[in-house]
Design a protein around this nucleic acid. Structure first.
Lengths: 182, 182
DNA sequence: GTCTATACGAAGATAGAC
DNA sequence: GTCTATCTTCGTATAGAC
């Protein structure tokens, strides 16, 4: 990073900033490239100069959360299973609260996420997280862990009116009830 | 109903049938009116003669599930709270398994469901169901119940490769762990 | 009443001028 | 690097044949 803003990155950053706000407020599908361009003070074509398409804008919005999730999965990989499960639970709750807005956006996109190669790494790490959350190879526990993640993703949307503390409390209670420690 | 198919209803039914299959396979947003018309063997305009728009087609696809949910809620309304909770849990599991394909479709549409007056009654009954599932006015338990419903909706999507029995088992285990009886 | 043909505005995306 | 112009396809709407 240089001493001052390189000015070539300014427009790009502004696009991501405005896209995140619009995605959170109205959802990914309900936000058009024109909406993003207008909010960012540029044209549709400029957005598509900086990003290969709408999914690429989404990937940029999700990037910070994706990086933290990748770090979580990497850390869990170095622990024995029981400890990895506890770490996954604790830090997944942290991530959910910290990125609750972004999680909200993710939920909006889940149905079509398979056809977005841009967010494939995030999805792959999400699967690995579910593996650690389950804490067992039992298919039922794997399903329960996926159930837990889906429940949390869904809850982040309707929680616009609840505080971070309420969301954290809910996460702790729900994951505590669902995921049994060995 | 007459003795034979009225022929006026044949096209309509076929449109709903094909739309349901396409919504389940590719999702609501990824399915165009043209796709539905082609699959049903008619033109786009014919689809829009029978239905006021794409959301109306969705409402027709969801109608059977919506009716059963309405019956569930009506039955629960006549029971004391604890019994209503048990009824809601049991029959919600039945509905989830029976309409798993439709539930999958619902999940695809959740983000934009607020702007679809056609499915507003379904959504309203979904909220009431959450109320009965919670079994208490405690805001935390209400959140947990919503968490449970979201988890289930999400699970129905990824469960294309699992059997009805597996899905039912998962529902029973997950709801059993999450929702405490008084 | 049922359908085909056609047209309109907006979406995502591309080409090329500056 | 940013723009205007343009293309295709989408959802939607209307006119009119049978």
């Amino acid at each position: 990073m240089a001493v001052s803003t390189p000015a070539r990155e300014r427009t790009r950053r502004e696009i991501v900033r405005q896209a995140m706000a619009l995605f959170q407020a109205n959802g990914y599908n309900a936000t058009s490239l024109q909406d993003i361009a207008t909010a960012a003070g540029c044209s549709k074509a400029t957005v598509l100069y900086h990003f290969s398409g709408k999914p690429a804008v989404l990937a940029a919005v999700l990037q910070p959360a994706a990086e933290d999730l990748a770090a979580l999965v990497a850390d869990a990989a170095q622990l024995p299973r029981a400890e990895a499960q506890q770490l996954a639970i604790d830090r997944f709750i942290d991530l959910s609260v910290e990125y609750r807005g972004v999680v909200d956006v993710l939920q909006d996109v889940l149905p079509e996420i398979e056809e977005m190669p841009e967010v494939a790494p995030l999805v792959a790490n999400g699967m690995r997280l579910i593996d650690y959350l389950a804490g067992s190879d039992d298919p039922l526990e794997q399903d329960v862990a996926r159930f837990a993640v889906n429940g949390l993703l869904g809850e982040c949307r309707h929680s616009a009116d609840s505080s971070d503390e309420d969301l954290r409390r809910l996460c702790e209670v729900a994951l505590g009830r669902l995921l049994r420690r060995a």
